[in-house]
Design a protein around this nucleic acid. Sequence first.
RNA 1: GUGGUCGUAGCUCAAUUGGUAGAGCCCCGGGUUGUGGUCCCGGUGGUUGUGGGUUCGAGUCCCAUCGACCACCCCA
Length: 402
Amino acid sequence: MTQKFEAPRGTHDILPFEQPRRRWVTGEMELVCALYGFRRIDTPSVEDTDLIIRTSGAGSDVVQKETYTFEDRGGRSLTLRPEATAPICRAYVEHGLHREAQPQKLYTIGPMWRYERPQKGRYREHWQLSVEALGSDDPALDAELIQLYTELLRRLGVTGYELRLNSIGDPVCRPEYVERLSAWLDANDHRLDEEARAKRATSPLRVFDAKSERVQEALRDAPMIGESLCEACREHFARVREYLDAFGIAYVLTPTLVRGLDYYTRTTFEFSEGGTDIAGGGRYDGLVEEIGGPPTPGIGFGAGVERLLLSVADAEVPEPAIDVFFAFDGDVSRAEALAIMAELRRLGISADTDYAGRSLKGQLTQAGRFNAGTIVVVDGDGARIRDKRVALEDLVARLARR
RNA sequence: GUGGUCGUAGCUCAAUUGGUAGAGCCCCGGGUUGUGGUCCCGGUGGUUGUGGGUUCGAGUCCCAUCGACCACCCCA
């Protein structure tokens, strides 16, 4: 009995016909990052499990139920990266990038893994653009990352999106706020529901993610982080907004935006389009130190490639085309023509021919599929291009001129 | 991880109250054509996701399993 194989659940093949659109998207990502002075860095797709747990937070959903963790043959516990911020920070420390000129503006594009129930635009293996600026707490940098992404969206023709923005404080002011919030939650426990209490148990801030209309109503009376920011955080957030205003970038202040990973401080933001989040990130000023580096501020965001592809599904993307196609009329020796084809390729002229034994009509159809700029029909007397006779010896010179 | 919908040729789908599968597109060939992209004709292609069960007989009913999708959870 032969087994039927499929791509593992939540993973998918990226077929040739999808490549041009995808290339366009990832190409614009690289282009925009370069325009903004970010340099590419690539890290392994697996990391030490401890790195992921320490940075994302042991209590976070990602770590609790979404990681792909396994032991390799040497007994090491490895985890497929669920996001790229921690790996990039690890590389930053490991290779001493903190000793070079700051900030280090870095980005990567690659596969990330999350073990969850697949849906459209939600895959266990999906690709993300991850943009990170390490070594500066300048609020202009926060604004720049946001602007960078809006510029990417502009180039891709995505318009109907929303940007949500918040500041969740830092180690100076957040603990105090969390205490105030906890006190309020204790006093108003009767106004919460099962879900809200569960969320509270993992992290007090997460109650703001509660779905229930009634609970949201109640939470409107709860103390908001915005009112509790320390002077430094308040000032920082004001600057970020000032820059965004100057850049003409609209945003929705969302006091309840807390995000799922433990490492965030100060600025948090997310972009959504068509009801789904297409990018999200924030500042993480304690992360580098947490993994053994010097105290280093940082800010970054992740943007889903597949989700962006859904947003640009209707955009027109030019089809790939080939320069020259060789067709053979009748039972002709192909050797000389194929040698010419190789010569063209050496000159940087793309060329192809039929390998399926097609009829002449079939070969021309094939040439059409390749969007051939020129079709050379080789027959017993040489060749012809659009019915004009051309000697085989003249082909290269003739085609190279085009 | 929880709940729900669905799963027939590569793709999109059809198949009377359960009776041993069809079409269009695609692909290949032929004709027409300004040497391909239009139109016409013909052809290849399916153990109905998989494994059990009920039945004289199942694509059509039941169970399990895998997968897709939707909601929740959460996120890119």
